[in-house]
Each structure stands twice: as C-alpha cells, then as structure tokens.
Amino acid sequence: MSEPNAETIRPDSPRPSPEWVFWLGLSILGGFYVLLIVAMIIADLFYTTPGHLLEAIARPEIRFAILLSLISCTITTILSLWVGIPLGYLMSRKKFIGKGLLDTILDIPIVLPPLVLGLSLLILFQTPIGQAIQRVVPITYQWPSVIIAQFAVAAAFSVRTMRVTFDQISPRTEQVAMTLGCSRHQAFWYVVLPQAGRGVLTAATLSWSRSLGEFGPILIFSGATRMRTEVLPTTVFLELSIGNLEAALAVSLLMIFVATFVLVLTRWLGLRGTGLL
C-alpha cells in the first residue's frame, strides 16, 4: 500500500462566511415578528385620537370596566401565586405516584379553548355543590365569576413559572439550611423563597397580564352586563358589536398602555440590583 498523497489528505483551510451574515439572517427571520407587533400598535395609534381616548375614559361604564379589570386582575394574581408557589415547589422537589397525571391536569387550562373553559365553569356552578355555594355567594353572571374565570387560566401559568423557578434553584441550600437547624418549612421561607423572588415577580406579571386579556371564559361564565361584569375586553366586544369602533380602539389602546406599563415596571423591579439595569 502506498503512502497517501499529502495533498489529498490535507483539507482546505476553512473559509467561513463573515459572522455578520449569520446575525443578519437571524435579524431578518425574527424581525418580521417584531415588525408585526410594532406595526399593529402604530396602526391603532393612527386610527384614534387623544379626544376619543378621553371621551371613552369619561364614560361611567368604561370607568367601571377599568376599575373591575384592575381589581379583578390584582386579586387573581394574588390567588395565582397562592397556589402557584406551593404547587410549583411540590412539582419541582417531590417524586410521587401520579405526578405525570397531575402535570397533565395542570396544563389543561393552558390548552383548553377559552369558550370551553367558560362553559365548564358555568356547568360546574350548576351542579348541586355549585348551587349550594351560589346560595351563599352568587357567582355566575356576578363579579366573583370574573375572578374565577381569570384565575382558572392564570394559575396554570403561575404554577408552570414557579416550577421552572424552583427547578433552577439547587436543593443544596435548603438541605444545608435543614442541617443548620431549620424545619422543611423554615428552610422554604428563609432560604428558598427569597431566592425565587424573580420567579415570583415573573409569575405575577404573567398572571396579571393573562387576566387582563381574558375574555372567552368571562363572556360565557360572567356574561357581558354593563356596570356589573364588564371588564375591558368585554368593553371592546360590546363597543364593536354596536359599531362604535372609536371607543373599542380607545379601550384597546388603554389596555396596551396598561399592559406595557406593568411589563416595564416588573422588568425594572426584577432587574434592579442585579447589575443588568
């Protein structure tokens, strides 16, 4: 066997395309989406005037909708964290029989069509147990139903966010805390939860903004009664259905402003002190 020719085994030195081509490609692919978002908002802005916005805000039923949206979203966020933190921790740290099933159940509200969720809630509160509850606290077509409809979806996002958060925190610190004299409970409060601060903030933002945009389940479960169960998405729907595009747009813009403000605020709160902001 003869020696292989050095020329044939020496590969060509690589000539990579310039790096900027790669980044440009990524920017073009992603840029379309960013463009879509910005273009939508700009189109909304051009379609309305500050006058329309002020006019809309001056109407008592829209003020009611703003107030109900703000209050219900905040209550829903607190409730979502209330279940999201314990469930997220449980799912992150514990192995138990039926965990896979529980995981699937927790994802149902995320994948379920909103109308189906609303209908299911409506049916639930028509069962004997549901009716018994309603004899004490009227729920269906009343304001508490708004919170329940928002909570049913928002909590699923909160659980998921908190689970990922706890997954990223090493169990080592809480183990050490326990050897230092903590009960499991104390280790969670003093050592784990402070480390999960960012995750809690993210879960709260997600829950709040999901709740603000919640419409399908609310329409079915709470109805669209002015001055009673009307939240901001309901207003958009009601104004559109009577052909009042200006008012619908004004309220839509209001929602965009509020949602953006909440996003920016939580980002700022979350990044402050981390050296990133």
């Binding site: 080592r172 610190t173 050490v176 805390a177 402070p194 480390q195 601060g197």
Partner: peptide
C-alpha cells in the same frame, strides 16, 4: 460547593 445562601 459551599451552598451559601445567596440572598443573604
């Protein structure tokens, strides 16, 4: 890894 409590 020491596992110090990073929030303290």
């Amino acid at each position: 890894d020491g596992a110090l409590f990073p929030t303290m």
